[in-house]
Design a binder for these strands. Structure first.
Lengths: 280, 280
DNA sequence: CGATCTGTTGATATCCTTCAATTTTGGTGG
DNA sequence: CCACCAAAATTGAAGGATATCAACAGATCG
């Protein structure tokens, strides 16, 4: 039931910035809070496809949230081969290492043309300490990313080629869905088979064979940079995965209360010395 | 029950708890701050070897810091194979997911007899918001862990068996050294070859062959649960790795100042709406 | 509308697994 | 201290999943 005002707003601006949609899933942010990291609080920048946005070890004064497009973290080996560590979707944070340490241990490259919102290290740290709900929500995002890294380790360590490809397609499906970027059974997949291979520790030739197999079994269609997931359950079974690790559920009322309580008790106290029950 | 004779504390107990040594490397903590998470602020618990300390998905009210011994995170596949995701050494935090979400997406098991310091979720969150230096130091620890996960992905995706084993031995060396657990060229390595294999996505038989090769080349000795690293540079070359990703350097003065400044400005302000320069 | 990526397919090579002994180590009780 | 047992390490032989290399077809884009 949309009213006129919100309709006319929708015409001027996208209804939700992806990062608000993504992070609010855990803990709703007020419009003011959302603006601190969004369009009005951070500088918009744009990059073409296949450009290093952040170089390994490079000192930086600012971080960014990806607003549009797709990017990846990667590391290059001495012989030129590379490993893609993770994919960045709209709403993803570039790297918290930059906030605290001023540089990253890996490179970040655009895969498509991308738009980002940049924010200075100093400002981000200030905002986090002043706004516990923002801190909590960014923390949640970092935990989610960590969970994705663990899942990738499991995939690379213990799944065969079919399992790896299936798992990655599932993850991309769930993540796109979480930020509202799927339409029906379709999602944008602007990745070459070389990029999939570099993410999965396989060769492009073998990724191709696996994908052809999935097509022949009617699990997916893939063409013109659009992936159609015709049988998600089937993919999940091959990839032996579900979306639990993405922790897409909102914060429990207790957790939310805990966070809000912290924001009121934000004055320093002398370091406590008593025990506080912890047993379970 | 608490020990009755803790007056002569300094004489009876080790001078530094491992987690203080580990975390203070980034940003020195005052004794009072250190106590908040250490012996006096958190409850000591003990577990035998090969026990699940935290089960996958299990709801928990407390977290722990590992004080002594070795543990691992792992996930089990449907067919019973398992993937060890990472190893926990003294000074490592069990899992921040528990703090924010109340449970983890993986299990944590002891590999040896372990001692832990447990702290309730609620208390930890409170402490972090009240003590920015503690928050910063835990944040750093989480970033370090994330970097280790990325490194594991690179190893599993792009290194052969020799490279994987070499990299893991190097990481264990650096991490033990960082908490003062090496002696000369030796470090404790209470892992079976099956456990190494489960961490590296290999079979125990093949891990054995690689280790035998390293021994024959004079790179390492390994017996009685003690690893002697005779040629770290050689291992690094085979593993194509260095310790940069562990970020063992202390916080820069600017970063430390940024953090301390945040602790004073801890009163909420209205959400800012102006841009804040971010360009670099 | 040609140049250049990207995708597709085949033949062969190889690293690692699988399976199955056998030996060694470490722990336990007599 | 030794005997004994289970777990871990070690080694061999054979098989398989994926890599490598090479060629060609199709798509994309200036």
């Amino acid at each position: 039931m949309a009213n006129f005002r919100s309709n006319s707003r929708a015409l001027q601006e996208p209804p939700d910035e992806p990062f608000v949609r993504r992070l609010s899933r855990f803990l709703p942010l007020s419009p003011d809070e959302a603006d601190l990291l969004g369009r009005r609080g951070a500088a918009a920048e744009e990059y073409p496809a296949d450009i290093d946005i952040v170089g390994e070890g490079e000192t930086r004064r600012s971080l960014f949230v990806l607003a549009e497009g797709m990017a990846c973290r990667y590391r290059t080996m001495e012989d030129g081969r590379r490993q893609i560590i993770s994919f960045l979707l709209p709403g993803d944070f570039c790297d918290m290492q930059i906030a605290l340490l001023g540089s990253t241990d890996h490179s970040i490259s655009s895969l498509t043309r991308v738009k980002v919102n940049a924010i200075s290290r100093e400002r981000l740290i200030g905002v986090m300490f002043k706004h516990p709900r923002i801190a909590a929500v960014l923390w949640w995002g970092a935990l989610q990313e960590q969970a994705m890294l663990r899942e990738r380790i499991v995939a690379l360590g213990r799944r065969n080629a079919r399992g790896r490809v299936a798992y990655l397609l599932c993850e991309l499906w769930w993540r796109h869905e979480a930020v509202g970027l799927t339409r029906g059974e379709m999602l944008p997949l602007p990745l070459t088979q070389l990029e999939l291979a570099d993410a999965l520790g396989l060769t492009p030739a073998h990724v191709n064979r696996v994908l052809m197999g999935f097509r022949d079994s009617g699990l997916i269609s893939l063409s013109h940079r659009v992936l159609t997931v015709r049988n998600l359950a089937g993919l999940q079974e091959i990839g032996e995965c579900d979306n639990a690790y993405l922790r897409l559920d909102p914060a429990s009322p207790e957790t939310a209360a805990m966070i809000d309580r912290s924001s009121h008790a934000a004055s320093p106290e002398p370091a406590a010395t008593r025990f506080n029950g912890a047993g379970d």
